[in-house]
Amino acid sequence: MRDTRRTRLLLSIALIAALALIAVDYQHGSSPVMRTVKHTAGSVFGAAESAVSFVTAPITRFVGGGLAGSSGGQVAVLKRELAKMRAELSAAKLSKSDYARLHRLLALAGTGGYRVVAASVIAFGQGYQQTVTLDAGSSDGVRPQETVLDGDGLVGQVTAVTADTCTVLLATDPSSVVGVRMAPQGQVGWVTGEGSSRTGPGELKLAVLDPGAVLKPGEQLVTAASVHDRPFVPGVPVGTVISVKNKAGALTAQALVRPFVSFASLNIVGIVIAPPRHNPRFSVLPPKPPKPAPPPPVKPAKSRRTAGQTGTTAAGH
């Protein structure tokens, strides 16, 4: 109980062990041994998390997921696939909002031609990391470095996979970098996350390679294709420019981007396991708002998008 020499010895051992672990992970983070350790721990904790999440999912949805928009027009073709995917989801009972989310996810995937595996979020990263765990793993065909999206747009990329779970680095994480194209002209740039802020997961920072590019609020971004479509497939909606901060003499034009996805209430997402045959370009984007004013974050965008998807899908068929 009391502080003895033994306790202090133990303390120093623990401190040294922790520092050694940090050092080893820093130096050889991708060595087979560390990967095995992480993988094993990931399987164990992931299984526990799935179990807990299965029980507590209603609570989470009740608190976090009240933002589902109304699903307007529905595509008949997608309905069968929807039913199939619904059965696939581990949390077999889907609430109405989940149903709507899944439907929008499928609509987006169908528009862009992505083959997706639906999954739901079972755990969230601790502290300052913007990561989540999904309940789909290598047994579902998920591999590292795949694009994750939901019905609104880009969510992030898969970084680690165990048999039944995978870890996703969200686009809002400071270490995440996503190559993007501006909607009308196709200028190339990239967005990085800003981490969490006082108002939850915040905006993205856009940097456009052309320093003379004229950025305007309301312009929309999609992902640019990565090499071999890994980690990002082309054409996934990313966000809307809300403010431009051009600095004279800067190498890039900079702007703040509000993501389409509401990262605070992530729930059902899709992992793109096969890229589209053709680059969808900007076809997946929701129609631009009539007014140049930045759209209010989520709800209007959703309804608009649904309408747009209906149109595009119908055209596709």
């Binding site: 922790a18 904790f45 992931g46 502290g127 990561t131 165990t162």
Partner: peptide
């Protein structure tokens, strides 16, 4: 702390939270 470092969504270096929490 070690468990928190290893549990799936974790992205940080292993041992970070172990160091803090043991102190």
């Amino acid at each position: 702390g070690l468990a928190l470092d290893l549990a799936p969504p974790a992205n940080q270096l292993i041992g970070q939270y172990a160091l803090v929490f043991c102190l």
